[in-house]
């Protein structure tokens, strides 16, 4: 009931969104495994081997094991989702993702009733990822969601952008997309998904717990210590781009606010 209403709402909001171009989306990336400059990923991510690829799904699931990317794709229905993408650095894009709901992937493995959280891990390949030479953060990159966030119909695993296979710098061959959270939650090039009963560690929270919380929901009323989160700048609007107000939950408040009912969003940032 509510989920369907929520999706209908998302559908309406989507129509108003004008997606960023392919070049904008694929040339301005944060993927520190390939370097910390915005153009490092597009320059160096080509060397990442994405075929063959498999995702280990383990922990509190009925059918743990290695799921090959090809097998996953064969079982999923790919659809387009045009989402706002809001980086914690206060820039934003609109990305037309192609992918499937994470809930469908988790169904493959069968989540057991005691699972409460989902942990994710990015590939760790020092020979293919030059950025791993530097301890910018504690590698490998890890992320996590509460189970209800993971099962939310807006949460997808993306395998494409603009109808083309997702390029390496954007997290090939499959990445998480959680549109109401800051971009760093949408972990790239996923190799492991673990269902647990405890809140899993997350990469940026480990690096700087004062600045990055577990939830990291887009929230214009809670500032990041280094950036105001009240406004954002759309990528591609040029040297004289105006700032735009940031929307609560990145514009997905109607769909996801109920997940956090009764929670102090200032404490759980």
């Amino acid at each position: 009931g509510t989920a369907l209403v929520g999706l209908a709402g998302a559908g309406e909001a989507q129509e108003a969104l004008e997606p960023n171009g392919w070049d904008e989306i694929t040339s301005y990336c944060n993927y520190y495994e390939f370097g910390t400059n915005k153009d490092d990923p597009s320059r160096y991510a080509g060397q990442l081997t994405t075929d063959p690829w498999s995702v280990t799904i383990d922990g509190l699931v009925e059918r743990p094991g290695e799921y090959s990317f090809a097998d996953i794709i064969a079982k999923m229905t790919i659809e387009e989702r045009i989402y706002r993408f809001r980086c914690v650095e206060a820039w934003s894009m609109v990305v037309p993702w192609n992918g499937f709901e994470l809930a469908d992937l988790l169904d493959l493995a069968g989540v057991t009733s005691d699972a409460r959280y989902v942990a994710f891990e990015t590939a760790y390949r020092p020979e293919e990822m030059p950025g791993l030479r530097f301890p910018v953060i504690d590698w490998p990159y890890v992320e996590g969601l509460r189970l209800d966030e993971a099962l939310h119909p807006l949460t997808i695993m993306a395998t494409g952008i603009h109808g083309r296979p997702i390029p390496n710098q954007n997290g090939a061959p499959l990445r998480l997309v959680v549109p109401w959270k800051y971009g760093f939650k949408s972990i790239k090039s996923v190799v492991r998904i673990t269902l647990t009963d405890k809140e899993p560690p997350t990469a940026w929270n480990k690096a700087n717990p004062r600045e990055y919380g577990f939830y990291s929901n887009v929230n214009p009323t809670v500032d990041h210590p280094r950036w105001s989160q009240a406004s954002e700048r759309r990528i591609g609007a040029g040297l004289f781009a105006r700032r735009e107000p940031t929307l609560m939950f990145n514009g997905y408040e109607a769909e996801v606010a109920s997940l956090y009912e009764g929670m102090d969003l200032r404490a759980n940032f």
Partner: peptide
């Protein structure tokens, strides 16, 4: 920055 030489986020 004005003509795109500084990428998609020239500011």
């Amino acid at each position: 920055g004005l003509t795109g030489g500084l990428g998609v986020e020239p500011i």
